[in-house]
């Protein structure tokens, strides 16, 4: 099995701050991967590591089985749309396409031209005067026309209005359908990704929380409620993601590969939205857990 992104113990430190740490994951090829997490969770860092804009401080990462950003060939295999889709403000749309053609040996002028026409962009217009949505579409055009094997997009729709957001994701899905390439895109809102992705990675507080096929995640997570009891009283095969207790009742969000048969529990499925929110709110617990061992060492 080949992987789009394969990371092992991956960490990135800026100054004293770890933007990402202990990240081990293997995202299979041919998926549309949603990378979700709150702001400053490490999403941009992970994607910049994947395209080779930055190098890891610890661990290793391979994109499409090779060192990210190593040499022009590898750079050409990965299409990247950066956050806020920077473009050269003084250059026209047509000049951006020319740049793409000059700097990418596998450039497909047909795709570029037809997309620009389809989008109704004026090739002579300066990129600096484009709307946010148009700029994002131009950036996507540049990334796709270089004929990459995978497409990585960093918060592509964050700054777009709902209509432009829908348009952008629609173009993206058309591309995926037409080219069959792997896509990794990040967002701090699961709502943006829910409809498009079939693989999910959740990053919170510089750490990987969960990663997997959307269908697997939904079938392995359940919300169970029953008479009040401690989390420690649950069978070890159930991993507790979240717990809440009222006077008589306990509710847990659990992850398990086995079906839950205990009749004492009411088992309900979870939505993807629910699941992601739960993992995101675990941040506080996570940081507590990482602090504890240090205290032990000191005492």
């Amino acid at each position: 099995m080949s992987f789009v992104i394969e990371a092992s113990g991956l960490g990135k430190q800026y100054g004293r701050r770890w933007a990402l740490r202990d990240c081990t994951l293997a995202i299979p090829d041919g998926k549309v991967v949603g990378l979700v997490g709150p702001n400053s969770a490490g999403k941009t860092t992970l994607l910049h590591l994947a395209v080779g804009l930055v190098s890891p401080t610890s661990g290793s990462i391979r994109t499409l089985g090779a060192n990210p950003g190593e040499g022009p060939v590898q750079l050409g295999r990965v299409g990247f749309v950066a956050q806020d889709t920077p473009v050269y403000g003084k250059l026209s749309v047509a000049q951006h396409l020319r740049m793409g053609a000059w700097l990418n040996p596998r450039w497909d002028p047909g795709i570029a031209a037809s997309r620009i026409e389809q989008l109704g962009l004026d090739p002579r217009q300066r990129a600096g005067t484009l709307s946010g949505g148009q700029r994002a579409q131009l950036a996507l055009t540049l990334a796709i026309a270089k004929s990459p094997e995978c497409l990585i997009l960093d918060e592509p729709v964050a700054s777009l209005d709902p209509l432009a957001r829908r348009e952008f994701l629609r173009s993206l899905m058309e591309i995926v359908a037409a080219q069959g390439i792997s896509v990794v895109l990040s967002s701090h809102l699961i709502a943006d990704l829910e409809r498009v992705c079939d693989y999910l990675v959740v990053l919170v507080g510089s750490r990987l929380q969960v990663a997997g096929e959307v269908s697997d995640l939904l079938s392995s997570h359940h919300r169970i409620s029953g008479p009040r009891r401690d989390a420690s009283g649950l069978p070890p095969s159930l991993e507790v993601i979240e717990e809440s207790h009222t006077g008589k009742q306990s509710t847990f969000l659990i992850r398990t590969s086995d079906p839950v048969h205990d009749p004492a529990w009411t088992v309900r499925p979870v939505t993807l939205d629910d699941l992601v929110i739960t993992y995101m709110s675990r941040q506080a617990n996570t940081s507590e857990r990482t602090r504890r061992p240090q205290l032990k060492v000191m005492s």
């Binding site: 804009l53 950003g69 022009p72 750079l75 299409g79 950066a82 920077p86 050269y88 700097l103 596998r106």
Partner: peptide, 17 residues
């Protein structure tokens, strides 16, 4: 400043070149 380096350095050309 304008972050266009992200665009430039993700084309099929190394940043050294």
């Amino acid at each position: 400043e304008t972050r266009t380096f992200v665009l430039a350095w993700t084309q099929s050309i190394t940043r050294t070149r």
